[in-house]
């Protein structure tokens, strides 16, 4: 039994920041840390993982690994676990990461802690904190099987650079085309200059108080001045002003940026569940009684149509 494996999240050679967050976290556990990267032509990425302390980099290359697909990735990783016997494996809690981890966990008849926000792993024992009820409560869970499996929420583990050897290991390829059961017919990337909600440092969200696309435009303007992600409460999604993928809250995404700005959002418990763990929270709302003020570090009682333009022009100075 040896080491912690960090499953790299990358697409087309672009490494997601959560990969480095996971490597930084795994270093704290005192065990050997390896990055495991699947893809095509990804060996060149190895030095990037070494910067965050990866002692080894397992490189899994081949046509069938070019893009994530459950069957081939699970078959390959299961074979590698069998050969190298890692103590713990962590994945990013992305759509792909949690699909990968869940299917692998069942194949191994193992436990899995998903969407972890705090970890304590040593000697094949893993205790994790995960938010339940979309952050309304926290559960501490122990995964009783080895390797310990978990998916880690983006943006919660602190980045810490440290030099690792980054020695490339090329494991035997155990998966074949016969393991691929999903045929990807099309992939339409989201065309947006804005960062993704769950990875952004700043999130600016609009709610019912935006009253329509005009109000949303103001929210977008503020978001773009801050290089922020755009989000919305259920009211603005249900009204069709924003797509569902931008919903923040219990039936949408849980975000934890450095700064969250709620514009025209009253702060229903459903919404608060998705953003209360943000480091700083500001709000603009006409209703002085709105619950959003109870969680805001800086609350402005006012009309977003009048306040946002002032904020934008002040920021420009």
């Amino acid at each position: 039994m040896a080491g912690t494996w960090v499953i790299v999240e990358q697409k087309g050679g672009n490494i997601r920041k959560v990969t480095y967050e996971m490597l930084s976290e795994a270093k704290k556990w005192g065990d050997e840390v390896s990055a495991v990267v699947f893809g095509q032509g990804v060996e060149a990425l190895a030095p990037e993982f070494a910067k965050f302390g990866a002692d080894k980099v397992y490189v899994v290359e081949g046509d069938i690994f070019a893009n994530y697909n459950t069957g081939a990735y699970v078959a390959q990783l299961a074979a590698m676990i069998n050969e190298y016997q890692p103590n713990a494996i962590i994945f990013a809690h992305t759509f792909n990461g949690r699909d990968f981890a869940s299917r692998l966990a069942q194949k191994l008849e193992a436990g899995l802690a998903t969407d972890v926000i705090k970890a304590n792993v040593s000697a094949g024992k893993g205790v994790f904190t995960r938010s339940i009820y979309a952050g309304k409560a926290l559960a501490e869970v122990e995964v009783a099987t080895v390797p310990v499996l978990a998916t880690i929420r983006a943006g919660v583990m602190e980045l810490a650079e440290s030099a690792g050897a980054g020695a490339v290991v090329k494991p035997a390829i155990a998966a074949s085309a016969a393991d691929v059961y999903q045929v990807v017919k099309d992939f339409i990337p989201t065309v947006s200059a804005r960062p993704e909600l769950t990875e952004a440092d700043v999130v600016v969200s609009g709610g019912r108080g935006c009253k329509g696309p005009e109000g949303i435009k103001l929210v977008e303007q503020l978001a773009d001045m801050l290089g922020a992600a755009l989000g919305g409460s259920r009211a603005s999604i249900d009204s069709g002003w924003l797509g569902h993928e931008l919903q923040v809250g219990q039936t949408g995404k849980v975000v934890n940026p450095n700064l969250y700005i709620a514009c025209g959002i009253s702060g229903a418990i459903q919404h608060l569940a998705g953003m209360s763990s943000s480091k700083f929270i500001a709000c603009i709302n006409t209703d002085t009684e709105a619950p959003i003020f109870n969680v805001s570090d800086f609350g402005v009682v006012g009309d977003l149509f009048k306040v946002i333009p002032v904020v934008c022009s002040e920021l420009k100075k």
């Binding site: 899995l112 409560a137 926290l138 501490e140 869970v141 122990e142 209360s276």
Partner: peptide
């Protein structure tokens, strides 16, 4: 395969 050790409420903002 997973045991719940404890449940808590998050620190209130």
């Amino acid at each position: 395969k997973v045991a719940i050790v404890s449940v808590a409420l998050p620190p209130s903002k």
